[in-house]
Write a protein that binds this DNA or RNA. Structure first.
Lengths: 362, 362
DNA sequence: CCTCAGCATGTAATCGATTCCACGAGGAGG
DNA sequence: CCTCCTCGTGGAATCGATTACATGCTGAGG
């Protein structure tokens, strides 16, 4: 691989001049510039990013540690993050924690060792010493989707409170009174907040949320299945199961089907996080949709602001309820079935990326 | 951030000794070793991977350029790649090409600039000059899923021929005679091969594959929708649509639903690439499943073999047909409906990794 | 008691860039 | 004509590691 020295030799100038041309420093003669560029061309020279990073102490790389690549929500988040980062001149290295704190730490350590310029994290747990140290040490960092309370790091996330209230209103309107939730790990903010929002919304209707109706999941499909089986085994099973993410909803669907039961006749189902497939499941699943793409972009902007010395901003965007048929039909409100309400092109990747809708930032 | 010099000062030794301790070189006294380790501990020192890479000319990093992160198939592939790489002591940087050749080139260039040790690619097109040059220049490289003919690079992929034949047998058995396919880009091997396999299988039953029944897609949902609409507009629309990937199947489903038609009564649907959601779509979708996890692992092993000087091996694994209900019911063969055949726990991420089940492929 | 092997250690070169500083040439201004 | 500033350029230090080579010390063997 040709180095800057080879280019310098080929062009008959010093390495300093080559470097200046490459970083278009003003003080280079037109003659030298053309000779250097010609040499670069003939040698097929590409600057060594490793060497450059060592010298400048900048990698122009962001780390993104997500909880689970197999979850379409995070996949979409990752895509928008990479897109925005690329637009701002950064690359992204993704670490997949698989909802396992030790794997999360592995990736954080790895990214830090590589001297990434900043870190985007959706923490799997309440915060390992490693991550807390990194935050305290001043590593540019932004939390996205989930966050760790008490740490001075900007947070970019969706607020699902209003949407959960809408969901409960919808369920109540359909006559459901026994409502259960499959929660995420209590150590995650999304794990506990969604339960709280659900409980509060139920309270408005005077409906309690007994412990038996709070299943402890881990955001993975298998836990959704296990918890749902527990619900179905109760003396008085719930009429509705609300899964705190889409994978647990998938698991719930599996469990219901394994019993030979049907959604929504035998039991209703709703999920947090909307995905294109929910339109085509049997039945189409009512879900709370986050403005995922917008969140990813906002998170990158906040992180890059922080990196480049501008004050970063926390952002909270509202989630919204998307009613489909998995909770039952309401002949009154539901004269517009969802398949007409959500036009077809929305189910492509452009979904949720309409910035003009539902904006309310803090 | 503490450097090796700080550690050396703290421990009262030279940087060489520190380096030797860190790389556990035999020739270090026990005393020096403990002093160095203590210094490392108190300073919270972590070696700078950038500097190390510059010196050793190894990054212990693999690049993975996939065609589309939003496609669950590639997402699962990426996960298994990262897993195996981690087990072998490598990190992975993922580049998402979004099926766009210029974006693919962007990522390849970026990864090469970062001096990754090797490249795993699922090419979006027939091979850009950049990629061909890289291959010729001796960059360790392995193609996964798709490949570029005429380039001397190991290929790890699934052979869908037998499964496609099984599919056509299944469709023929159900009485279908007008079979159409939504193809991928002709510039990709999977784009053209799947059409060829389909055509050959049809030929065995004396069924032609007219041009009108070959829709040109690009592996994205939107193209599946467009092509399917074209099929439905034909004077004699097909009885079956076979989508060459799961996203185009999603688009096809959207198109069918937009017309108010039903699968499989009005039109049957099958897809290449199985995903967990296909179990729960309306109706469950018959698909050809690849051993995705195994492919990812084999690809990493081949690449690391190449990097570490062992001869890499191309690998081809068989895909298999998973019959569900989207092509119609066959009262004869189908007395075991799919939901019982595929036990619930299979729909988690462990899916497809159970070699023993549902094997109806050669 | 001398020699030499081998071990522990340090000094310094090196990887490929960026960048400070010095220097010479040339032009403007006095 | 001299001075000084600007511009283009090159030399060399530097980033943080690894590693070849040199050196001093210890102990075994003759």
């Amino acid at each position: 691989m040709a180095s800057i020295k080879d280019v310098a030799a080929e062009a008959g100038v010093s390495v300093a001049t080559v470097s200046r041309v490459l970083n278009d420093h003003p003080s280079v003669s037109a003659d030298a510039r053309t000779r250097v560029l010609a040499a670069v061309e003939t040698l097929g020279y590409r600057p060594n990013a490793v060497a450059r990073s060592l010298r400048t102490d900048q990698t122009h790389t962001l780390g993104l540690v997500i909880s689970d690549v197999l979850n379409p929500y995070f996949t979409e988040l990752a895509r928008s993050v990479e897109e925005e980062a690329r637009a701002l001149g950064y690359s992204v290295i993704i670490g997949n924690a698989d909802e396992r704190p030790e794997l999360q730490d592995h990736h954080v350590r790895n990214l830090l060792d590589r001297r990434i310029d900043g870190l985007l994290v959706s923490p799997t747990d309440g915060g390992s010493p490693l991550m807390l140290d990194a935050a305290r040490a001043g590593t540019p960092m932004v939390f996205v989707d989930r966050w760790i309370p008490g740490v001075d790091v900007p947070v970019v996330r969706a607020d699902g409170r209003a949407a959960v209230r809408d969901l409960v209103a919808h369920l109540h309107g359909l006559g459901h009174r026994r409502l259960a939730i499959i929660a995420g790990p209590a150590a995650t903010t999304t794990g506990s907040e969604r339960v709280e929002a659900f409980r509060e919304a139920l309270a408005e209707y005077g409906i309690p949320l007994p412990d038996a109706y709070i299943g402890q999941g881990d955001f993975q499909a298998e836990s959704g299945r296990r918890v749902t089986e527990g619900f179905l085994d109760l003396a008085e099973p719930p009429e509705v199961v609300f899964a705190a993410d889409n994978l647990m909803a998938l698991g719930a669907l599996d469990a219901v089907r394994a019993r030979g039961l049907r959604v929504p006749c035998d039991i209703a189902l709703a999920a947090f996080d909307d995905i294109p497939w929910f339109v085509h499941t049997d039945p189409p699943i009512t879900a709370i949709a986050q403005p995922t793409g917008e969140l990813g972009r906002a998170a990158v902007r906040a992180l890059v602001d922080r990196i480049e010395g501008r004050p970063p901003q926390s952002v909270t965007l509202p989630a919204r309820l998307v009613v489909r048929r998995s909770c039952g039909e309401n002949p009154e409100q539901n004269q517009n079935p969802e398949q007409n309400q959500r036009p077809a092109q929305n189910q492509s990747r452009a979904q949720n990326e309409n910035p003009e809708q539902n904006r309310s930032t803090s």
